[in-house]
Amino acid sequence: MAKTVVSFTLNGSPVDVLVEPRELLIHTLREKLATTGPHIGCDTSHCGACTVDLDGLSVKACTVLTVQCDGAEMLTIEGFAKAGALHPLQEGFSQEHGLQCGFCTPGMITRAYRLLQENPSPTEADIRFWMAGNLCRCTGYQNIVKSIQYAAAKMRGETVATSHPVLAE
């Protein structure tokens, strides 16, 4: 099949890629654009490890064709830290121990970002419901919920602190 050039904005920078129509966005990102933060965890669009933010929507990059992204604005985990400063979500995941092996983390943070754009003050139930497209095999989600709450509070301008002080015991 003839390849086509697809242009979009990735983490603020314009990119052009040459792809077959059948190429999945996740492969373009990972193999052609050195954007290996989003991961592949399944074949059936269930795990969310591949989540990226596409034109203001959280999507699974394994279930989007790259050719569908012509003209899009895309944000991946690589676009979160600005000038060396971590995004509140990145800080929250670290402070609240919201990750272990880290494989789900880029997708989690990217998904949580869109959630907080839509709902800056989610309850635990909101978070559990709206994060349910991202599987994590390590954390049991409890600390992920806390991480997102930490970030939400910080983004609302509140003072925040880890619930795991260094010298508690």
């Binding site: 954007t35 933060g37 995941f93 990750l99 880290g102 260094v166 508690a168």
Partner: peptide, 18 residues
């Protein structure tokens, strides 16, 4: 100590190396 994890900075920035 509940030391914060040394491996986190790379994972939360998509810089893990799997």
């Amino acid at each position: 100590c509940s030391r914060k994890r040394r491996e986190d900075p790379r994972f939360i920035q998509g810089k893990g190396n799997y």
